[in-house]
Amino acid sequence: MTDDQQHMDEWLLDDQLDQLTEDQRRELMEALRKNSALAKRSRRLQRLLEPLDAFTTTPPPTYLVDRILDRIAAQNEDLPVVPGSALMSGQGGSHAHRSVFSFKEMLTLAAMLTFVMLIVVPGVANVRAKSRQVACANNLHSIGRGVLAYAADNTNMLPVVASVANQGGWLRETEGVKPYTPNSRGRYLLLRLRYVDDGVVFTCPSQPGAEALTVANPHAFSDFPDPANCSYDSQNMAGPTARLSTGCDMPYMADANPLFVGGKFNAIDPRLSNSRNHNGGAGQNVLYLAGHTQWTKNPNCGVRGDNIWQAGTLRHYRGTEKQTCAEDAFLVP
């Protein structure tokens, strides 16, 4: 290849990447008009680069700007003044010469400690619980983005594995129902096909024992290797609504269904029960097919007050039950 040709080839790429000055671009256009071989290479380069346009990205979450501004605002606030450790130990600093507290000081200290124990500690615990609840909602939001992207690529189908939609039972520890076809395989597809980037978003930070899946190659599995890798239950893929519904805003995924614990049916009243993920039953985050998440203290949050844990109004389960209609949310492990 001559130096001129190499030079022109580089200009072809520069042109594709908007790197040329106006003068350079005019010179290149002139050369393309005169040189058919160069024009051919130009078209070839264009076709080489075109597939890159297919690598689209999901937009950032809507709360991201607010979160950035909140963090910046927090930087501007003064840090709270914490009572000095020298006072607590009775040594050091300006208090070094004093060996004992006066009675008045002891009373003040006791009052402060009581205040801390009664007001601040529970408050901090609540803040931490709230923080985990928000992190859990963010997880579901990330998964929701993956679900929508999957549906966009797959003619509105929700992530489903054929064997799940056909036969068998979705409850691990039920006698007489075979084969075991876990519903979680559908959720795992999102990770396997990289619609969701990180296994950690499938674990709720509030769920005791949850353990994020951190494998380099999710393709090596067809399901979460350990039930602890997924804190959330999703629409039963054996049922009739395996498509992204455009008509109604269905619950699609939520914190784990309390009716099914450890792979077994747990005979409790579904009308009154929240997921155990958050403080043993404080409520649950629910992801809806429109892409939003909602914290609710009531499981009757489906279409027209539908209970998201139940198939219709069924109270006992073996792992073969399905939704009773297309608007019946039935979130199972």
């Binding site: 290479r41 070839r44 076709r47 597939p51 297919a54 966009a152 690529d153």
Partner: peptide, 28 residues
């Protein structure tokens, strides 16, 4: 880069992938 520029024009992307598949392939 030079080799890629000088092959036959129709070789490149002659077979189109479906949109979803193409997105996955390019991303990977």
């Amino acid at each position: 880069f030079a080799d890629l520029m000088t092959g036959a024009e129709q070789e490149v992307g002659a077979v189109e992938l479906q949109a979803g598949e193409q997105r996955r392939v390019v991303r990977r």
